[in-house]
Computed example of a mutant assay.
Amino acid sequence: MPLSPSQTREILAQIDHLPRKHLGQNFLVDANIVRKSVELASVAATDRVVEIGPGLGTLTRALLSTGAQVWAIEHDPRLAAYLRTDVMPDAGGRLHLMEGDALDAPRAGLATNEAAAGFKVVANLPYAISTPWMDSMLADPLPQHMVLMLQREAADRYAAAPGSKQFGAISIFLQSAFDIAPGHKVPAACFHPRPDIESYLLNLVRKPVPYLFSPETKRLIRACFQQRRKQVSSLLRGKLPDDGQSWISTLTLEGLDGRARPEAIPTKAWQRLSVT
């Protein structure tokens, strides 16, 4: 069972820890949401699971209860010490805990060869690192499945459709590699301390044939969205050998032309863009 708000407050007092807002330390205290996270990811005893920011280990314990192996990374030294003392002894050697920054170790220490054999991610992802962390995960080997607790704003941006204001480079990169399955709304009351915003469980399933952009192409697409009100013919001028005209000519397949703005161009069209 997850810790109740009163139990969470008691443990935080015992370890002399005040939740740090800039690290997104809002601790999950709702049993239904913990169960839903594990269920959406279909976590089984044979799975390797990466968790980011385990905090007091509420979700960690639920993942371990399935029999899965869990790789977790915790940035806060006090919380990492608590996990080593209160969670690891009961984990039967299945909790691999790393103390550090998830941007430096996005797979929480899971080795590349083990990741290549298949892994999942189930995490309450801090808002401050959500996009750079997500970007780092969009590389081989890709997780089979990710269930991520995110601020609703971030979830909407990742799932945004072309033509919307939220649609951007990260939407393109993510939706090229993962299908967005039904998720779950998470009210602020499910956390301690209670955040000011609504959260969402984003449910991502790896595509049968995922598409990954080259680093150079990703840089160009990001640059285009930094000036998203300009026409793509203007944005690509001087950036590609033919000023992007060969790619722009393919936009007719989408009923578009060089006057289109980046947010109007669908993901499949961006996949035809290549920087060589």
Rank of each mutant, 00 (worst) to 15 (best):
M149W: 00
L28C: 03
E99R: 03
R222D: 14
P266D: 09
I248R: 03
D90Y: 10
R157E: 12
Q25S: 05
Q227A: 11
A91F: 02
L125H: 00
N124S: 13
F27C: 03
L142Y: 09
R228A: 12
H75N: 09
R259C: 00
T112L: 14
A45W: 04
K218I: 13
N113K: 10
V49S: 02
Q7K: 13
A80T: 10
Y158W: 15
Q226L: 13
V29N: 03
C190W: 01
P2S: 15
F191V: 06
A116C: 04
R219I: 11
T267K: 11
P266R: 11
Y82V: 07
E263T: 01
R157G: 08
V275H: 03
E10L: 09
E39N: 09
V43C: 05
A181L: 13
A154R: 04
Q166R: 14
R206A: 13
L220N: 03
M98R: 14
F167Y: 15
G168N: 10
I15D: 03
K230Y: 07
Q144S: 14
E51V: 11
D140C: 02
D156M: 06
E263R: 10
R157D: 09
A260N: 06
I129V: 15
A161E: 14
K239Y: 01
V122S: 02
A139I: 10
Q227M: 06
S42Q: 15
D76T: 05
Y211L: 11
